[in-house]
């Protein structure tokens, strides 16, 4: 597989703020890559550079064989951009808008096909201003696909959606991967990245702080948490990375939970101590993500 996107050492500074500080990644053809990170992590800046809306201060960029800033018409002919909050003439009908925004592409998808792809059959001849929020976003997606692009940029496709609308939107995106499209998606929802992406790049403060498949990210640094209450905390065994004690409630963090639990329970039965409210929790991906962010924060502070 060849690369649809290659980015090396991307740098972008706005005044004093380093929006991007040496970001490098590749996206293979047909791959779904999620750029994950909190607001202000540099996701949007990175994507807007790749879309050709902004110029990087430094870095090598190749998208579908073009440099986005100079690729011009030939480049835009092969990409589809679905941004949050990009307007469209609300007095036009769905069909008219799709015709208008599709007209300049060399490879136009038939309007009826687009409409049924996003499930707006009932609304084809309705004015856009009469669409619901979810329908609007589906129209946005259809507009982004009007030129049958090889590469689709999806900017936070489900921000502000209710759970049902999110599911529906995910199904649509999954449909795109079945069509063989390369997708670069930004999101600040971990579960969304996990659900949709083949690979996740985690950005924080303009840097990549983690990268991998959803599975490998999940197993990278699994720290199991063990919690219980005891009446006397004086003589606890030394396991994991030490204990935190708050009013007789003890918390261990363990990277080897099998051995540590054995030590702990033997200690308790030997002394006849009751481990009240014993709890063993594996971190959710959410926790791992928060850990990564915290780690990135600390790294930032050390500088």
């Amino acid at each position: 597989m060849s690369a649809a996107i290659t980015v090396t050492n991307l740098q972008k500074t706005y005044g004093e703020v380093r929006a991007l500080d040496g970001v490098s990644f590749t996206v293979a053809e047909g791959e779904v890559l999620a750029l994950l990170g909190p607001n202000g992590a540099g996701k949007t800046t990175a994507v807007e550079i790749l879309e050709g809306y902004r110029r990087a201060d430094e870095g090598d960029i190749e998208v579908l064989g073009f440099h986005p800033a100079t690729g011009g018409r030939g480049f835009r002919d092969r990409i589809g951009i679905v941004l949050q909050e990009t307007g469209v003439e609300e007095v036009l009908c769905v069909r008219e808008a799709l015709e208008l925004y599709g007209m300049a592409y060399s490879r136009q998808r038939p309007v009826d096909e687009l409409i049924s792809l996003v499930g707006l059959e009932e609304k084809g001849d309705s004015r856009i201003k009469t669409l619901s929020g979810g329908q609007r976003r589906r129209l946005d997606l259809a507009l982004g696909l009007a030129g049958d692009p090889d590469l689709v940029f999806l900017d936070e496709p489900t921000t502000g959606f209710d759970p049902a609308a999110r599911r529906k939107s995910w199904e649509l995106v999954e449909g795109l991967t079945d069509l063989g499209k390369t997708i670069l998606l930004t999101t600040h929802y971990l579960d969304e990245a996990q659900h949709l992406a083949d690979r996740i790049v985690v950005l924080a403060e303009g840097r990549i702080v983690a990268e991998g498949t959803p599975e490998s990210l999940g197993s990278a640094q699994v720290v199991t948490t063990v919690r219980f209450s005891v009446s006397d905390t004086a003589d606890l065994p030394a396991i994991g990375d030490g204990s935190e004690i708050a009013e007789n409630r003890v918390t261990y963090r363990s990277t080897d939970p099998t051995a540590d639990l054995y030590t702990l329970t033997r200690w308790a039965t030997d002394r006849g101590v009751e481990l009240a409210g014993l709890e063993v929790t594996r971190p959710s991906l959410e926790d791992i993500y928060l850990d990564i962010m915290e780690e990135a924060d600390r790294a930032g502070d050390r500088e």
């Binding site: 879309e51 050709g52 809306y53 018409r73 030939g74 835009r76 002919d77 990409i79 951009i81 941004l83 909050e85 990009t86 307007g87 469209v88 003439e89 925004y101 007209m103 300049a104 592409y105 060399s106 507009l143 009007a146 030129g147």
Partner: peptide
């Protein structure tokens, strides 16, 4: 208004030449 609503930005992301 078209600019404020992001219509111009959308147009700019398509192969339609800006002069057109």
């Amino acid at each position: 208004f078209a600019r404020d609503q992001g219509i111009l930005k959308r147009v700019r992301g398509t192969p339609l030449p800006p002069w057109v």
